[in-house]
């Protein structure tokens, strides 16, 4: 069940006009990356575990955890728990709801659908009982902000160069 669309997709993309389409291109490149890593990791054949290995949770190096269980990760990303074990404040970074990495992360790492996370955050914000995560535009910005912010947590796909942040195991 490998998809293998890589070579055939590359050609029409090269013919796209230059101006004003950078965002679109970036998005489709991200999509391409995804189908690539999906294919490499076994995709449908290995089911969800294949997807889990395709992205990881990252934290600021000053955060003293090396592993995090799925329930805790869910509580942190749904903004219910806002302190680490040593009482340091947590700052959560996420990609936009429609980013494919966000969707895969929510489903495979947290077991939540993106619409559920949005609903939880909206309820907190618009009832004054909490805050929503900080939204970043790209994976690069995610790494940058997590590196710069004490107590920060975010997620990336497993390929980019993620120096200056710590990768955390999900158990």
């Amino acid at each position: 069940m490998k998809r293998g669309p890589t070579p055939s997709r590359r050609a029409p993309r090269a013919q796209l006009p230059q101006g004003g389409l950078r965002g679109l291109l970036r998005k489709s490149r991200q999509g391409l990356l995804w189908s690539l890593s999906w294919g490499l990791s076994g995709g449908v054949a290995t089911g969800v575990p294949g997807l889990v290995s395709a992205q990881q949770i990252i934290v600021n190096p000053d955060v003293g955890v090396v592993a995090i269980d799925r329930n805790r990760a869910r509580l942190i990303f749904s903004m219910r728990v806002n302190q680490w074990g040593d009482k340091q404040p947590v700052t959560v970074f996420v990609l936009p709801d429609d980013a494919s990495l966000h969707q895969v992360f929510a489903k495979s790492a947290l077991g939540l659908y993106p619409y559920q996370l949005r609903r939880t955050w909206d309820r907190l914000v618009f009832s004054g009982t909490g805050q929503a995560p900080v939204q970043v535009a790209s994976e690069q910005e995610m790494i940058e902000r997590v590196r710069q912010t004490a107590g920060a947590i975010g997620y990336i796909s497993d390929q980019p160069d993620a120096t200056g942040v710590k990768t955390v195991r999900v158990e």
Binding site: N82, Q83, K87, P89, V90, V125, F126, G128, T129, G130, Q131
Partner: peptide, 18 residues
């Protein structure tokens, strides 16, 4: 029309209004 502000002064205290 709604305008909403929240300010987390520290992990224990949140001020919010709309």
């Amino acid at each position: 029309i709604g305008l909403n502000a929240s300010w987390r002064l520290n992990p224990r205290l949140l001020l919010a209004g709309q």
